[in-house]
Computed example of a mutant assay.
Amino acid sequence: MAEPRKTSLYNAHLKYGGNIVDYAGWALPVQYEGLTQEHEAVRTRAGIFDVSHMGEVEVTGPQAFDFIQYLVTNDVSVLNDNQIAYSFMCYPDGGVVDDLLVYKFSRDHYFLVINASNVEKDVEWINQHAKDFDVTVKNLSDEISEIAIQGPEAEKILQKLTDTDLSQIGFFYLKRDVNVAGANCLISRTGYTGEDGFEIYFDHEHAESLWEKLMEAGKEEGIRPAGLGSRDTLRFEATLPLYGNEISQDITPLEAGLGMFVKLNKDNFIGKDALVKQKAEGLKRKVVGIEMIDKGVPRHGYEVYADDKKIGFVTTGYFSPTLKRNIGFAMLDMDYTALETPIEIKVRNRTLKAKVVSKTFYQKHYKK
């Protein structure tokens, strides 16, 4: 079995006591001092994450706009230059190849940020469909490191390291060629935690220096390094999906409750016909929020029952560090998706009582 790859921040993770695990073929910290402490740091102060494992693909050329519009479910025609859209790439049957962020530099230049676990598959999919368009596709994933700084103090901390006025970067916008502590960076403001924050992209050589300078700049504000564990609990509380959980090859964006990112009224895109049909016929199942009544944590993959029959499965579940409740998402048959519907979760050999609740667990605090 291949050794997991190391990001350019691997030594920093060891220095700060990171508990290293193999995630999508990468050696990454699941936590440092503890998941709950890191989660709370991001909610109340600031945390920094190594997200260098994410994939980046550049698409350029005279037909770049037409290609991206065909490739993804969202409508990129409404994007200004330096604006970002969240979207999906779908299979012809409506299942999800991946969810991604589309950065528009200009009409003939786009930058796609894709999931680490899907880089190889995604790049192959993008190249396969690019053949019919006058575009050039470059996989930049091995050339770029990325740090995310998240939390209510994120702007204040990062501002100490740059002369660029960060308050002028709006939510889901980007700015290129930003000097951060001597490094030329691309900065965006999207976040995957429900809090304000930034993503900083740069060449590998600056990784450890930027990490240390951010830690030093945020010392007064109580910044903490944060691992994969808190990244997942934070995104989950903020109702943000994870590929392989709430969306997958077998789960469409409509079933995941993410139809707002699927523009069925735009010109043809891959998967459009299947998604139009699914919407017209009505969903047979969908992802809902769940809350435990009995003591127990609903984990990914646990089976869900009602009326003595299996009605679905848990996609994500945790004890919420912010809400102090055992909550989750579950894919359930439509007949059981109304709020307050009683359900049962099979936890090992026990069946525990739960109920359907709103998926809006946490009020997001993005910069508007």
Results as ranks from 00 to 15, higher is better:
Met1Val: 11
Pro4Tyr: 07
Lys6Gly: 05
Ala12Phe: 11
Lys15Tyr: 08
Gly18Val: 00
Leu35Ala: 12
Gln37Glu: 14
Glu40His: 12
Glu40Asn: 15
Ala41Tyr: 01
Val42Trp: 01
Asp50Tyr: 06
Gly61Tyr: 09
Leu71His: 04
Val72Asn: 04
Asn82Tyr: 15
Gln83Thr: 11
Gln83Arg: 14
Ile84Gln: 07
Phe88Gln: 03
Cys90Pro: 08
Val96Cys: 14
Ser106Ile: 10
Phe111His: 13
Leu112His: 02
Ala116Met: 09
Lys121Cys: 03
Gln128Arg: 15
His129Ser: 11
Ser141Gln: 06
Glu146Gly: 02
Gly151His: 07
Pro152Trp: 07
Glu153Tyr: 05
Ile157Lys: 00
Phe172Thr: 07
Lys175Gln: 15
Asn184Gln: 13
Gly194Pro: 00
Tyr201Cys: 07
Phe202Ala: 01
His206Gly: 04
Glu216His: 12
Glu220Cys: 08
Glu220Gln: 15
Leu228Trp: 02
Leu228Cys: 09
Arg231Asp: 00
Thr233Cys: 05
Phe236Val: 07
Leu254Tyr: 09
Leu258Met: 15
Gly259Asp: 15
Asn268Ile: 14
Phe269Ser: 11
Leu275Gly: 04
Gln278Ala: 11
Gly282Tyr: 13
Gly282Ala: 14
Gly282Cys: 12
Arg285Thr: 03
Arg285Leu: 00
Lys286Thr: 15
Gly296Phe: 06
Arg299Cys: 08
Asp307Val: 05
Lys310Gln: 14
Ile311Thr: 08
Thr316Pro: 00
Tyr318Asn: 01
Pro321Cys: 00
Thr322Trp: 02
Lys324Ala: 12
Lys324Ile: 06
Gly328His: 08
Asp335Asn: 14
Tyr336Lys: 02
Tyr336Arg: 05
Tyr336Cys: 05
Tyr336Asp: 02
Tyr336Gly: 05
Thr337Gln: 06
Ala338Pro: 06
Lys346Glu: 12
Arg350Leu: 05
Val356Pro: 04
Val357Ser: 00
Val357Trp: 05
